[in-house]
Design a binder for these strands. Sequence first.
DNA 1: TAATAACCTCGCAA
DNA 2: ATTGCGAGGTTAT
Length: 308
Amino acid sequence: MTTALPTALFIPGEPLDLTSSLTSGQCFRWRVDDAGRWTGALGGDVVRLSPASGGAIAVESAPSPPDETAKALAGYFRIGDDLAAVQRRICWDERVSEGVAAYPGMRVLRQEPWETLAAFILSSTSNMPRISRTVELLAETFGERVTLNGAARRTFPSPERLAEAGESRLRELGCGFRAPYLAEAAAAVASGALPLDALRGAPYADALAALTSLRGVGDKIADCVMLFALDKTEAFPIDRWALKVLREWYGLPVNAKYAEAREWAWSRFGADAGYANQCLFWLVRQSTRPLRSIATIEPPQAERRAWP
DNA sequence: TAATAACCTCGCAA
DNA sequence: ATTGCGAGGTTAT
């Protein structure tokens, strides 16, 4: 027997572009079909998002009812942030302005802390396709199966589950040298030694210290987790792309340390540094497929600002 | 303190 | 075909 498929309408009331928000390297499990419908696994649910007219989004989900999921989506996409206001505050920067113009509806996400930590531990010296593949394989192997109108997905496995799996099993699944890091992080979260969820309410410095106490988690990965899951919009993750941007567009000295670059970002963008970072990162990542061509992008001399 | 391998694995050049 | 190299880092020496 078939039942009518319940659908709810999610009306963000804010700029929201699913494509840039869901493909800009913050998350790894959303898939889009030819019709532009996005399918993901959110918490314990399979979720399907279908862009409708007027910026509305049709939501299907299971097992949670779609109207409940629609509310959760407001949190996931940080609809509480006034994106236009954020953009006005950081658009005086020419490069950030380019990013805003190119991706006007790109949101910074508020994802689940554990899944985000696990995914970014796996991101070390890797690339987006491989991260996605490994995350998906972990879900496929250890996650709970959930179905939506015949389509099946799996939830991201709990820390308990991955801790139980252990390093060797995680290696078998392609985690490589990150396997012990992931296993240890899972154990720390499962045991309560690392109160991940509580870090949402903690100051940046405290969250940073807690996260980097884990093996395999340094400044960059900690910043990703803080920005994409722990409500630290001031976090400014500096990967090799961001580093290249800082050096080539902003004149960051080659010998500058991570902490110095972070301080600079704060002096420039303050609490909006994370949004500025996302604009810059995705701009450079999209505009220069091969790493080598980035050197050809030089700002006009007049746009350069002296390094403080 | 600062530089430099080493670490898993995979996909894609050469 | 086979090999070498780098990919959204971090740790150990």
